[in-house]
Design a protein around this nucleic acid. Sequence first.
DNA 1: TTTGTAATTTTGTATGACAATTAAATTAAG
DNA 2: CTTAATTTAATTGTCATACAAAATTACAAA
Lengths: 228, 228
Amino acid sequence: MEFQTVDKKNLSKQVIDEIIGLLQSGQLKPGDRLPTEMELMTMCNVSRSVMREALSSLEAMGIVNRKTRKGTFFSDRIGSEPFSIMLALSSGNLKSILETRISLELGFVTLAAEKITDEDLERLNATVEAMKEADGDYTATDKEFHEIIAHSASNPLLEAMIGPVLNLYDKTLEQISTNQKNPEITIGHHEAIYEALKEKNPVKAYQAMYTHLSYVRDKALRGLKERQ
Amino acid sequence: MEFQTVDKKNLSKQVIDEIIGLLQSGQLKPGDRLPTEMELMTMCNVSRSVMREALSSLEAMGIVNRKTRKGTFFSDRIGSEPFSIMLALSSGNLKSILETRISLELGFVTLAAEKITDEDLERLNATVEAMKEADGDYTATDKEFHEIIAHSASNPLLEAMIGPVLNLYDKTLEQISTNQKNPEITIGHHEAIYEALKEKNPVKAYQAMYTHLSYVRDKALRGLKERQ
DNA sequence: TTTGTAATTTTGTATGACAATTAAATTAAG
DNA sequence: CTTAATTTAATTGTCATACAAAATTACAAA
């Protein structure tokens, strides 16, 4: 006869669960104000320290925002913090960052092909046109293109992931600092992706995105090699 | 003339960054023991309260584990906690859960097609065979199939995401409780995915997985509708 | 009515005390 | 000498209290 060890949670973790439960149950909504620390500690019957530990954790995860004298509020949207941290901890090298990006963006573009709105299609097209007109650095426009696609998936969780991924990619690339940009190729790829999305064709969009990101990957890895 | 507001971080957030920096800089490795709370508070020149808030946050995110009398250790692997919480907060309905799953798994399977090892191929095949032999519930085996694929992408971050996604999916489906299972179709899909992975063909693997998960989605949504 | 100051509210930080957990050290028993 | 039992100690866990900081609100004076 063997007893399973009981996984005891400390009080602050239990409080975290309770507070998240307020959101999940619909008692409070994103953007709503929570009771004050003093009220919460009484409600949960724990010390203020425990409550602060729980709230600090929730704030680090972007689930709440706390402001002196105003109070503590649930965030309006799923924050990028948790994923940013996971990314920061995982980012061993450029290759794995690129692969993470590929993996996520291929999924995003598939959903986008199913669900993209005319408005987002126009915004996408605008970035393609802006890139054609751009004289110098088109990184921001390039990034915007990818962000619109993630947004088009109409899924707040997925959308919360694109920012951290692209930021980490940009940051890593800066450190390598290869300035071999081929705007024509990138623009061509973006156009192909755009056309596939316009047709609402997931497989075609996937293939266009995979081609694009594989090219980005190969170029970056080549640049890395030449740098050594 | 406009001044940008300075984004001031409180002390516990600053301490979090410093501790994560220990990992990123390689000073400490996953699994290593951190200094004690008392030592850390001296090193960082903050009170014990602030240090505990920071450590509680790190523990809530699965980055460290703390044990009475033993100390505080960096986790061996990227935890699922951050992503679990993001998922918990985002999970409005079955449709969005299904879409999240589709998006992520399509990316995973693409990378898996590039990188899968013979060993993982064998394990995949074993699950397909196990499902053929299964008399009753093959949920665990089905889940394992998908987990192996995520593992095959050989990316710790992506691998940390599959567990929470599948758990949430299972949990949501339980609540719907439609018992319309077609093992033959699922097995057929798994076989097609397996064959594509064996050929190391990303596009084919993607298409097979997309077909499978679209079927899963349609069936679940149909079941949901019939339940209302 | 506007401006300046004081009061207030809520979060932020520090300190000290004690509790709880659990490993290590010491003592006692066979 | 070995094993078992007890005590001690190390580290995290919780609580309480005090004060600081930030920033809004209320009140008084011009």
